[in-house]
Design a protein around this nucleic acid. Structure first.
Length: 776
DNA sequence: GGTTTGTTAGTTTTT
DNA sequence: CTAACAAACC
């Protein structure tokens, strides 16, 4: 209990049935949770295996496990500390046969499920109704998060448009296809677990009996399905707990035997409404679980007072929220530094310069983070950071496992582990190219249906389809390889089987011998994939192929954050949740970006954007930097940007402007700068008319002033070299690659690209106008 | 069936 | 601007 304040101590010690910890940003909630778990175990109120703790990311889960382990001196094994999704998959792998799936089910990510939907829509010609795959996916995901399936929808009476009908149809077909493929999408992982507990009370009772204490972090970002899951786990299954969900207003009586429930959250940090998160879960918690004890944590141990004051001022503009004031004992700290740049590159240069300063003053690169609203904003930052020599890492964005070639590799593993997953098998039919086009694929699928075979089995009998000898041979061989690999899994190490398998089908070899420079990188990615697999098997000798796939598919962007790397971290504001850094940059503080254009017309959208900004601000411990660009290239063309309305919400005396938007002729929204606060009424702000109507001529004159900034951009300012006229067969010398022969020339003028085979054996594609090459 | 070229549509945030 | 798609060509 040492080092805990009275409120924290109270939260750790409370012994009743349900506890709500309202924890402001930086108030030590992780500390409280870990101590509470450790205390439960240390006082023999629970065995480690009786603890279920839900966190938002796998990384948070690992951290928590480690910290509890430290407190207890290592007796933490057997605790379930994981995300909702991981915990549910773990349960489903054991129990899902009750629901008609097989325990080696595969998990579809958003991309997979979109491909499936696209196919279904096409087959049904539902696109004529104006149903796009993306829209259908979004709607279905929303519905699943609300625990509504296609049958529920069709039971609804009342007028339905043709579009609604089409959606119901597609939704039903989609779920059916998933079941047939023995696959679950992200939402199903939660939904099917809820189904399991509802339909099989004895299973539910078993897990209730197992978990005596349930703890949920980031409770403000739970959705309906997650809420229902918690309810099913923590309220009595016998008698009072009906199989169907009662109306949410109905009070829930916790029987003495029910597990205890602890939730931690902060409604000001709810930023996942777009994913179905429902703040009512935390707001109504006391109603839902009567007798709840509430603890408020308001002292912030993370940030300086100036940073907190800014955060408080911003979030204070959200009406309809519980008053809460964070305070800090860490002193005022320094002012917030702000900068308005001419362009995104200018802005990035400011960020780079300040990081340089900080580094000079002894701050480690790893202690710096740069946040942005959209992933598209990374480009300028990356370009400038490379030039400035600042080591950085992108957290999130396109993940390693999202790359096409890696997804191919994964699809192969799925084909081996779960052969009924048509989507995955079809993905790899012709990778690498083996002459199986759409027509052949169709014939194969029909053959498989007739013979009631899964696709790999059908491949082994391709001779019966009556295709040409070449294709038939290729198909039989592929099918045989998949079946053999499955058999080999029983005997040999997973990574060895996969390694041999890849060698056999030549997937890496084909890329290696390709002329396309990108293919070399792809081959390297596949080799990296194999070495990650080997690492995994070394770490988990008993793990199956399915275990590996699960881990890969549930691993989020924020999970592979490695604090030891000594680099600046770049990430979206969403990814930043739950993290903290001594120095934080929030970039792109412009109307249309933060708040994002898409959110401005949405109900509650502006309030959520404000919370997102609030989350960003409160990640900072000592230094906070805010920046924007008054000219930003979006959509391929340059646009004038207005400073974000959120900047107005920070009291002027907290900010020191290095370059004020007014100095460089930024457009204004027709209100005074840094002056009196506007009433933070969403409806009032949401008219958004200022942006368009106040668009003035101010920006034109600044073009000349911007010239300096432009010179900062990559490429501009470097002297164009004399034009090179090359032809295939010409010999050239490259500054770093040495001498080589031009093999091929494509494009013309400034965009001409030469494919060069260097004497070292390397092949490269080079932009003739830019590459440091000379003719020999 | 494979490859290249041209066209078009779409870009918020993510377990 | 890019990625995904379709059409035209080999």
């Amino acid at each position: 209990m040492r080092g805990l304040n009275p409120q924290q101590r109270e939260a750790v010690l409370y012994q009743g049935q349900s506890l709500l910890i309202v924890a402001g940003a930086g108030s030590g909630k992780t500390r409280v949770l870990t101590h509470r778990i450790a205390h439960l175990i240390a006082t023999h109120r629970a065995w480690p295996s009786q603890i279920l703790a839900i966190t938002f990311t796998n990384k948070a889960a690992n951290e928590m496990r480690e910290r509890v382990g430290q407190l207890l001196g290592g007796a933490a094994d057997g605790m379930w500390i994981s995300t909702f999704h991981s915990a549910c998959v773990r349960i489903l792998r054991r129990e899902i046969s009750e629901l008609g799936y097989n325990s080696s089910f595969t998990i579809y990510d958003t991309h997979d499920s979109r491909v499936l939907l696209k196919r279904l829509i096409k087959e049904r010609h539902a696109d004529t109704d104006g149903l796009t795959p993306a829209a259908a996916q979004h709607r279905i995901s929303q519905l699943k998060n609300e625990l509504r399936d296609a049958d529920d929808l069709s039971r609804d009476s009342g007028g339905r448009s043709p579009l609604d009908e089409a959606l119901i149809d597609i939704y039903r077909a989609y779920d059916h296809a998933l079941l047939r493929a023995n696959a679950l999408d992200f939402d199903d992982i939660l939904v099917q677990t809820v189904h399991l507990f509802e339909a099989f009370p004895e299973v539910r009772r078993r897990y209730q009996h197992k978990f005596r204490h349930v703890l949920v972090d980031e409770y403000q970002d739970t959705n309906k399905a997650q809420y229902e899951l918690i309810r099913l786990l923590t309220t009595s299954a016998d008698g009072t707990g009906p199989a169907t969900a009662p109306e949410r207003a109905e009070p829930r009586i916790l029987s003495v035997d029910a597990p205890t429930l602890t939730v931690v959250g902060d409604s000001d940090q709810s930023i996942y409404a777009f994913r179905g998160a429902d703040m009512r879960n935390i707001v109504d918690f006391e109603k839902d679980f009567p007798g709840t004890h509430v603890v408020l944590l308001e002292q912030n141990y993370r940030s300086t007072q100036r940073i907190l004051s800014a955060a408080n001022a911003v979030i204070g503009n959200n009406f309809d929220r519980a008053e809460k004031n964070l305070w800090s004992a860490l002193g005022d700290g320094e002012k917030i530094t702000a900068y308005a740049g001419y362009t995104a590159h200018d802005e990035a240069q400011f960020v780079a310069d300040r990081i340089d300063d900080l580094h000079q003053d002894g701050l480690d690169y790893r202690d710096v983070a740069v946040f942005y609203r959209t992933n598209a904003q990374t480009r300028a930052l990356e370009e400038i950071f490379v030039r400035a020599g600042i080591p950085y890492r992108l957290i999130g964005g396109t993940k390693f496992y999202d790359r096409a070639e890696v997804k191919d590799a994964l699809a192969y593993l799925v084909a081996i582990a779960n052969p009924v997953d048509d989507l995955s098998v079809r993905r790899i039919l012709n990778v690498p190219k083996r002459g199986i086009g759409p027509t052949t694929e169709q014939r194969l699928v029909m053959f498989a249906e007739q013979q009631r075979l899964d696709l790999p089995a059908a491949l082994t009998r391709a001779a019966e389809i009556g295709l040409g000898p070449k294709v038939t041979q290729a198909m039989t061989s592929l099918g045989g390889a998949i079946v053999d690999a499955r058999t080999a899994l029983a005997e040999d190490r997973l990574d060895e089987v996969v390694g041999r398998f890849f060698e056999h089908i030549g997937i890496i070899e084909v890329l290696r011998s390709s002329l396309d420079a990108q293919d070399q990188a792809r081959a390297e990615n596949l080799e990296e994939f194999l070495s990650q697999l080997t690492d995994y098997v070394d770490k988990h000798p008993d793990a199956s192929m399915v275990d590996f796939l699960t881990e890969v598919q549930l691993t989020a962007a924020a999970d592979d954050l490695d604090d030891e790397s000594g680099t600046v971290s770049l990430m979206t504001l969403h990814t930043a949740k739950g993290l903290e850094y001594p120095a934080v940059f929030i970039t792109g503080l412009e109307e249309g970006l933060l708040p994002h254009q898409m959110s401005i017309d949405e109900i509650g959208g502006l309030a959520e954007e404000r919370r997102l900004f609030y989350v960003g601000i409160t990640r900072a411990r000592r230094r906070l930097f805010l920046s924007l660009a008054i000219n930003r290239t979006v959509f391929g063309q340059t646009r004038d940007q207005l400073p974000s309305r959120f900047l107005d919400e920070i009291p002027g005396e907290l900010i020191e402007w290095r370059q004020h938007p007014d100095e460089i002729g930024a457009n204004r929204r027709g209100i005074s700068w840094g002056g009196s606060q506007r009433a933070g009424d969403d409806d009032f702000e949401a008219d958004g008319g200022w942006g368009a109507s106040a668009r003035s001529h101010g920006s034109r004159s600044k073009r000349s002033g911007a010239a300096h900034a432009w010179a900062n951009e990559i490429g501009v300012g470097s002297t164009p070299k004399t034009e090179l006229h090359l032809a295939a067969g010409d010999r050239i010398r490259h500054k770093s690659f040495g001498e080589g022969t031009v093999e091929e020339l494509t494009g013309k003028g400034a965009k001409q690209v030469a494919a060069v085979r260097f004497d070292s054996g390397q092949r490269k594609k080079l932009v003739v106008a830019l590459a440091p090459i000379e003719a020999l």
